[in-house]
Design a protein around this nucleic acid. Structure first.
Lengths: 211, 211, 211, 211
DNA sequence: TATGAATGAGCGTTCATTCAT
DNA sequence: GATGAATGAACGCTCATTCAT
């Protein structure tokens, strides 16, 4: 029975296995982030990690499972980052949202490979990870929407503007802005980028309701 | 010599070829939009169009060329839609931008397959269409940025907000909102969706500068 | 019923057909001589001749038939050349053989494409033209052997040397020398080349038996 | 990473691979020798060797590479045979050349498949192995020409006869004679065949200069 | 734990041939 | 006579997966 069967990616059994898995993880994230899951072969991943092909299967069971763990791992990093490690909320929810946006953009700059993988698969209708991707989207949108609702608790939203709709738009604005920075001009400063995204939040408020 | 050599995708020579190309085009757009270019085989496209596999190659020369023509065709439809068929600008640029957003969302609802194909390939670093995709992105961003600049000509933008940064964020907000509507809840009304996206534009303006 | 059915390549029916066939013939000989029968497509031949693909089939019935006519045609040219148009033999058969060698080398220089096609297919064990090629080989060897026998009628051959064996060796020496000249150094003069090949004939004679 | 990358054709790593490669080598040589490289499919080679198609690619990387290794391998056998395993030269260079001819004919009788492959590709103008074939031709001609020069060192050549020209003619005479024996009448004795080819050498000498 | 030789289903592409016009 | 759109069998090649070691 291979250890891949029930093994989550928690603390691995022995040091040797853990190191191998880690190397495979990093190599896979880098390659798949650059060329998409379909565009990378198991051979390449193994070679990049410096192990034999069979080792990938020994550790992950299948290419699909490897990608799935990649997605889960990246997602947990993102959620951790968005929640700011459990820091207490500031006095103005608007500041919290601004912080969230900045942290999201920072995360994208740090893990562009994961985000590219995620967005690249997100819109497929058939992927093997359809369920997981739907979960991920829901989880992120929930966090964003919560932030929007906290803002809306203090200040009225404009007519026809709903927290759910704003959350989706905010998600798109932030992630496309982040990927664009990563792909085309890192020159666009984090400040300029986050200010543009933050505009979306400001624009949802009734004129004259603070700020 | 096959018509694929050097053939633009204008109206084809004879009625027979034109009809076959059209059927292939539609079948390919549908399938590739759903499952991505890599996820669809030429066999499937041919079968869906009701022709032999060789006919795909007779008409398009290669799978890559077919996808490229799909992208170009969709792009020309989008640009046409965004430009509103050359309608004259209204008195307030803000109304023009709102109209653009609504038309973009309408386009996405109408051609979700094309948009899925586009966004699905956009973030790959290696695609065979890298050059084309970069062009497409630039073209759309140019149109959006022009709209933002027209708005900013009348009203001051907030500090640290630039038309270029806003254009990218707007692009992300609109297209992700549109895809989300297509994929998850068409229930979210066009109105709610476009209002959320439009907030981004409003939020870029100095408070008190009109509207 | 297509005219290809019973049509030899004699004088064609009408001028139009004759011209088309001729153009196809020349284009095919050139291309196939350069790249081998397998390496050339019917599309290429048609394009080089400036006609549609279907026209090749209308005129020749199949690619195989076209190649076969190419071989037959080249063979008839070669036999004509070797026989010197029926010129009467000279007083010394050795001069006749030398003349044959020179004419063979001249022919190869003139029709390298045909010779390349011929030699390229000659050694295959399965070709569609196996029978034809065997005939061709026999026909040429018969002519060569006849020349050798006429020489041997006047002068004794060395021990263990047979006209048949010499004919084959002469065939090889002449055609490889000719192809080599065509492919690598046309610089090697016809004189040098034919002198080398002619040595084979001289060497078959008992020392001191003339020349 | 497959062993095909950069792998010379020396004795392979493990016994398993070596055996598989050997079986593929033999099957490929036989089939390709009979029907030409174009005429044989990878499927057929794999089936003849009793392995899966993928195994051919695992071991050789491509069909082209397989053929190239076939050519190189045959060539090294031929050169070894021609050089007589480094045996010391006899007192008369003429005897050495006669020996070379006999060994060449013996080689052809032993490895007709290789020679058929070689000659079948030799005259193509486009082959993927053009460079290799040119090298092979040069290498063999160099050996032959060296023998001719050694003969010519003792005895004057006839006027207008050059070692280079003789080498090419000798090459043609020997290989066509050898192939002819293999293809049509093994009955023609080795003695008769080599005597005919050897005549070429004798005929290059000034009459009365020995032998 | 890890390896890597072997597999085989499936892919994109080619091309001789057909046939309605 | 000639055309060219359409065909489909067959090809070279890829790659996720298996398994004996």
């Amino acid at each position: 029975m291979s250890p891949a069967a029930g093994a989550a990616h928690g603390p691995a059994r022995t040091g040797r296995t853990a190191a191998t898995k880690q190397r495979l993880f990093e190599a896979a994230m880098e390659l798949i982030g650059q060329r998409g899951a379909d565009g990378v072969t198991v051979d390449e991943i193994a070679a990049a990690a410096g192990v034999a092909k069979g080792t990938v299967y020994y550790n992950f069971g299948s290419k699909n499972e490897l990608v799935e763990q990649l997605l889960r791992h990246g997602m947990s990093l993102l959620m951790e980052r968005l929640s700011n490690g459990g820091a207490s909320p500031s006095s103005d929810p608007l500041d919290d949202v601004r912080g969230e946006i900045e942290r999201a953009l920072g995360f994208i700059a740090e893990y562009p490979a994961f985000v590219r993988l995620w967005l690249g698969e997100q819109w497929r209708a058939d992927g093997a990870w359809q369920g997981l991707l739907t979960e991920m989207r829901a989880e992120v949108l929930a966090v964003i929407e919560a932030g929007v609702r906290r803002v809306a608790a203090d200040r009225p939203l404009r007519a026809r503007v709903t927290p759910g709709g704003v959350a989706v738009a905010l998600f798109g604005a932030a992630f496309v802005t982040g990927m664009d920075r990563a792909a085309y001009h890192r020159s666009r400063s984090l400040d300029e980028a986050s200010e543009a995204v933050f505009s979306l939040v400001l624009g949802t408020l009734e004129p004259g309701s603070g700020r």
